[in-house]
Amino acid sequence: MFATLATTAVVTHAGPWAAGFGWVFFLIPVFWFLVIGLIIFLVTRSRRRYWAHGGPDGSYGPPWMRAGSAESTLSERFAKGDIDETEYRARLEVLRANRPNA
C-alpha cells in the first residue's frame, strides 16, 4: 500500500515529464533561438531600410560609404582655396585616368 502511495505521489508531483512529455524541454531553447533570430532580423531590416532611404543628411548607403567621391572632395578643396587651378586640373586628370571602370 505504501509503495502504491509513494509511486502515485512521485508521478503526481514529478510533473508532465514523468508522464512522457520530457521532449517538451527541447522546445525551450528552440523558442529562445527563434526570439533572438527575430530580434536580429528586425534590427538588420530596419537598418537596411534606413540606409536605403537615406540617412539624416539625405545621403544613401551605409555610413562608411556615404562620403563623397574623390572628385567632389577635390572640387571642395579647390573651392576652399586649398589648391590652385593647375594642381586641381592635374589631380582631376589623374583621378579620371585611374577610375576602376574606365
Results as ranks from 00 to 15, higher is better:
residue 36 I to S: 03
residue 43 V to W: 00
residue 68 G to T: 14
residue 95 L to Q: 02
residue 49 R to S: 10
residue 29 P to Y: 07
residue 36 I to D: 04
residue 47 R to Y: 03
residue 14 A to S: 15
residue 69 S to G: 09
residue 82 D to V: 06
residue 39 I to P: 00
residue 38 L to C: 03
residue 90 A to H: 14
residue 13 H to L: 14
residue 57 D to S: 08
residue 69 S to A: 09
residue 51 W to P: 00
residue 6 A to N: 07
residue 3 A to Y: 09
residue 20 G to F: 04
residue 59 S to W: 08
residue 101 N to D: 14
residue 44 T to F: 00
residue 86 T to Q: 15
residue 14 A to Q: 10
residue 76 E to F: 11
residue 87 E to G: 12
residue 41 F to C: 03
residue 16 P to Q: 12
residue 45 R to I: 05
residue 7 T to W: 09
residue 30 V to W: 04
residue 73 T to D: 14
residue 53 H to K: 07
residue 75 S to P: 07
residue 44 T to G: 00
residue 62 P to T: 05
residue 13 H to P: 01
residue 88 Y to D: 03
residue 81 G to F: 06
residue 73 T to F: 15
residue 15 G to A: 10
residue 74 L to Q: 01
residue 13 H to F: 14
residue 78 F to Y: 11
residue 6 A to Q: 07
residue 21 F to H: 10
residue 50 Y to F: 09
residue 72 S to F: 13
residue 36 I to E: 04
residue 46 S to N: 04
residue 3 A to W: 09
residue 66 R to V: 13
residue 43 V to N: 00
residue 71 E to Y: 07
residue 102 A to I: 06
residue 10 V to C: 12
residue 7 T to N: 11
residue 87 E to F: 14
residue 47 R to G: 01
residue 8 T to G: 02
residue 29 P to I: 05
residue 12 T to E: 13
residue 29 P to E: 06
residue 32 W to A: 02
residue 29 P to T: 07
residue 90 A to M: 12
residue 27 L to C: 10
residue 5 L to F: 13
residue 28 I to K: 04
residue 16 P to D: 11
residue 7 T to M: 10
residue 60 Y to D: 12
residue 27 L to W: 06
residue 79 A to N: 13
residue 37 G to P: 00
residue 15 G to K: 08
residue 82 D to P: 00
residue 84 D to C: 06
residue 39 I to S: 03
residue 98 N to R: 11
residue 63 P to A: 06
residue 55 G to H: 05
residue 22 G to P: 00
residue 16 P to W: 11
residue 82 D to T: 10
residue 8 T to F: 02
residue 18 A to T: 09
residue 50 Y to P: 03
residue 80 K to A: 10
residue 91 R to M: 12
residue 102 A to N: 12
residue 31 F to S: 06
residue 100 P to T: 15
residue 28 I to N: 03
residue 96 R to M: 09
residue 50 Y to M: 08
residue 34 L to Y: 04
residue 37 G to K: 04
residue 55 G to S: 04
residue 23 W to V: 02
residue 25 F to E: 08
residue 50 Y to H: 10
residue 14 A to G: 12
residue 23 W to C: 01
residue 23 W to S: 06
residue 40 I to T: 08
residue 39 I to Y: 01
residue 91 R to P: 03
residue 64 W to M: 14
residue 81 G to H: 07
residue 63 P to Y: 04
residue 34 L to S: 05
residue 83 I to Y: 08
residue 58 G to T: 00
residue 70 A to T: 08
residue 20 G to K: 05
residue 21 F to C: 05
residue 97 A to D: 07
residue 85 E to C: 08
residue 56 P to N: 11
residue 95 L to C: 02
residue 33 F to L: 07
residue 17 W to P: 00
residue 80 K to G: 11
residue 19 A to P: 00
residue 16 P to C: 07
residue 12 T to N: 13
residue 35 V to W: 05
residue 53 H to P: 01
residue 58 G to Q: 01
residue 3 A to S: 15
residue 79 A to V: 09
residue 5 L to H: 13
residue 61 G to R: 04
residue 18 A to C: 09
residue 89 R to T: 10
residue 74 L to N: 00
residue 26 F to P: 04
residue 98 N to Y: 14
residue 16 P to R: 09
residue 3 A to C: 06
residue 35 V to T: 12
residue 51 W to C: 02
residue 97 A to V: 01
residue 42 L to C: 08
